[in-house]
Design a protein around this nucleic acid. Structure first.
Length: 630
RNA sequence: GGCGGUGUAGCUCAGAUGGUCAGAGCGAGUGAUUCAUAAUCACUAUGUCGUGGGUUCGAAUCCCACCGCCGCCA
């Protein structure tokens, strides 16, 4: 009889250690962790791998700049990644470094095998090369400036003898695989991009370098160092024992999911599979290329200084909140914007209000009316039954969505349960039942709400492990989340002791105060937008108070070729009408007319205001009324 | 330059095969309620479904053109 065993091998990219980890790498790793935890909960034997990519010219450069030898530089950076993952609650089973001796041996073994299979040949490369990017560029790609299309730096024309991988040979095999395995590359729009490349035919790939030494030496030809990407990709199999620990390797390979960012899709969806075919290994089941994060609408970049340190958010809001926010607010797969303001919104409304408060109000009543002992549900009606069905339906949908990596949609199902539960609670009015001493119905309401909350905590547990554990403890569980807890209604044992406890999530305020002199990047406007505002100089011909208003003055101004305008302005507290006459002021002339206290205003004058005073803007010296301002 | 995608309420976005598809959440407003973390529940969107044409009895949904943004490739 065949024993069915469920395994799940998931990987993140190995991160390039030329700088500290930022939200981008944290995002990928957190998502992978969520999937890994989910699969474990569902009973899979999970192997979750992450690690660091430590070879190549750029690392060498970064190490040199830091005044360190490359290995100790890498050791330090790899340590920082490990530390951050620990802080983020990442449950990786392996951490691979490409400078591990074991890994380097496997790379050589792998490349040798490609060679034996006739997939490598020595060729001469002539052309433009970007040293920092370790990339070759075609003449057509670089333009007249001869700058690197990727980093913008100067290119060198070089002639180099390299080993090439016969990537072109695998075009058809890959196309075939794409056709037979529509789930191979996700999301589907990424798959289509790769298909287009394949349909255009592949070129052979240069896979060694001779200009530096920081890498894995080519077997039997140590003048050559293996291209960093080839080195890096092999991590996915070297980390699980290929080719020496066959038991472990056969257990986990092929990978179920390579989770990556969209920028490295081509290496994972074309180059890597071709390499695997070359040595006769099965291909990973799915490559999922997620989108990029922007921060407050801006691309993450060092020059903008917005490369956020994820630790900041963990310390300020807690790990659960950060993880929840990333899944909830950034539609997994697409690009999305990371903003602290939205994070606080989600924390307050979804977590503190809908989730934490529901738990709190439920447990408070149990404490008060049942001395913190979960009662047995008694009388029930069609509302109770419908509630159970609605919840269980969401549970099933959640499982389905998680399976297909629709993570954001899966979270929405959990939140739907919370909304249903709050609604159920309000419909049933347990506080009224308590006053009426209707314990037969009160017990049912409180039990059902607890059961729903337990399910929510279980569903949330891959995403928010800490708070989920807390909720489970409070409703009387001292063991971890598992699939069984989701399978049917009525898991909670009556008579178990519950714990009321403190609010689960504390609300936060997001300080929006900004220095006006320091506009944030997201406040910037296009020149076009500014140009929409038509400003002119205007000479004040007359000024008088608007009757029955202590704020408004009515001015008649001369705007040169635009004639005279009547402007109503709220400056009466700061100016005597007559003192304005004769002044040349600045007015907006294309503002929609508006009526203030029944008086039409055909424009707006500009004024500067601080906490105590207001002064009308004027011009420096004489200029004709109606002069344009730009 | 080629190919692909996208443009829907203030914000973030859902809207197979054209006909309750004009929606959800957040924010805002009104009401209810008081068990609870000023929480919850109900009700409220006159949105040119980017613009202009076309096909059709009928289009956010199909076709063409244009504008904007994005991606992949070159």
């Amino acid at each position: 009889m065949e024993v069915i065993f469920l395994k799940f091998y998931i990987t993140t990219p190995i991160y390039y250690v030329n700088s500290d980890p930022h939200v981008g790498s944290a995002y990928t790793t957190i998502i992978a962790d969520i999937i890994a935890r989910y699969k474990r909960m569902m009973g899979y034997d999970v192997f979750f791998l992450t690690g660091t990519d430590e070879h190549g010219q750029k690392i060498l450069q970064a190490a040199t700049n830091a005044g360190k030898d490359p290995q100790s530089f890498c050791d330090e950076l790899a340590g920082r990644f490990k530390k951050l993952w620990k802080k983020l609650g990442i449950t990786n089973d392996g951490f691979i470094r490409t400078t591990d001796q074991d890994h380097m041996k496997v790379v050589q073994y792998f490349v040798k095998k490609m060679m034996e299979n006739g997939d490598l040949y020595k060729g001469e490369y002539k052309g433009w090369y970007c040293v920092p990017c370790e990339s070759y560029w075609n003449e057509e790609e670089i333009g007249a400036e001869r700058l690197c299309p990727s980093c913008g730096r100067e290119l060198k024309y070089i002639t180099e003898e390299n080993y090439f991988f016969r990537l072109s040979k695998y075009t058809d095999a890959l196309l075939e695989h794409y056709r037979n395995h529509p789930e191979f590359v996700q999301p589907d729009f990424r798959r289509n991009e790769m298909l287009k490349i394949l349909e255009g035919g592949l070129k052979d790939l240069s896979i060694t370098r001779t200009t530096f030494k920081w890498g894995v030496p080519m077997p039997d030809d140590p003048e050559h160092v293996i291209y960093v990407w080839v080195d890096a990709l092999i991590n996915y199999i070297s980390a699980i024992g290929y080719p020496f620990d066959t038991e472990k390797f056969n257990r986990y390979w092929p990978a179920d999911l390579h989770l990556i960012g969209k920028e490295i899709n081509r290496f994972h969806s074309i180059v890597w599979p071709a390499m695997l075919i070359s040595v006769g290994l099965p291909l990973p089941k799915t490559v999922f290329a997620h989108g990029w994060l922007t921060v407050d609408g801006q691309k993450i970049s060092k020059s903008l200084g917005n490369a956020i340190d994820p630790s900041y958010f963990v310390e300020k809001y807690g790990n659960d909140v950060l993880r929840f926010y990333l899944l909830r607010d950034i539609n997994f797969g697409k690009d999305g914007d990371f903003s602290e303001k939205n994070l606080v919104n989600r924390l307050n409304s979804d977590l503190a209000n809908d989730y934490g408060n529901l738990l709190h109000r439920t447990l408070a009543m149990l404490e008060k009316h049942y001395s913190s002992v979960l009662p047995e549900p008694k009388e029930h009606d069609e509302i109770d039954e419908r509630f159970k069905e609605d919840v269980m339906q969401r549970v099933k949908e959640y499982e389905k969505l998680m399976e297909e990596y629709s993570l954001t949609q899966a979270v929405e199902k959990i939140l739907e349960i919370l909304m249903l539960s709050n609604k159920y609670f309000d419909e049933k009015r347990p506080w009224i039942l308590a006053k009426q001493k209707d314990f037969s119905r009160l017990s049912t309401v409180l039990y059902n709400t607890c059961e729903a909350l337990m399910k929510v905590a279980v569903m949330f547990s891959p995403i928010m492990p800490d708070s989920s554990r807390e909720v489970l403890l409070r409703v009387g569980f001292d063991w971890g989340p598992s699939k069984e807890l989701l399978d049917r209604w009525g898991i909670l044992k009556p008579s178990v002791r519950i714990v009321h406890g403190k609010p689960l999530f504390e609300k936060k305020e997001f300080a929006t105060e900004k220095k006006e002199s320091e506009p944030r990047m997201d406040d910037l406007i296009e020149l076009d937008e500014f140009k929409k505002v038509k400003l002119r100089t205007a000479k004040v011909l007359s000024a008088e108070r608007v009757p029955k208003s202590d704020k408004l003055l009515k001015l008649i101004v001369d705007v040169g070729d635009l004639g005279q305008r009547q402007i109503v302005a709220g400056i009466a507290k700061y100016y005597e009408p007559e003192s304005l006459v004769g002044k040349t002021i600045i007015v907006v002339v294309n503002l929609k007319p508006a009526k203030l206290m029944g008086v039409e205003s055909q424009g707006m004058l500009l004024a500067a205001k601080d906490s105590t005073n207001l002064r009308v803007l004027t011009v420096d010296g004489d200029i004709a009324p109606g002069a344009t301002i730009s």
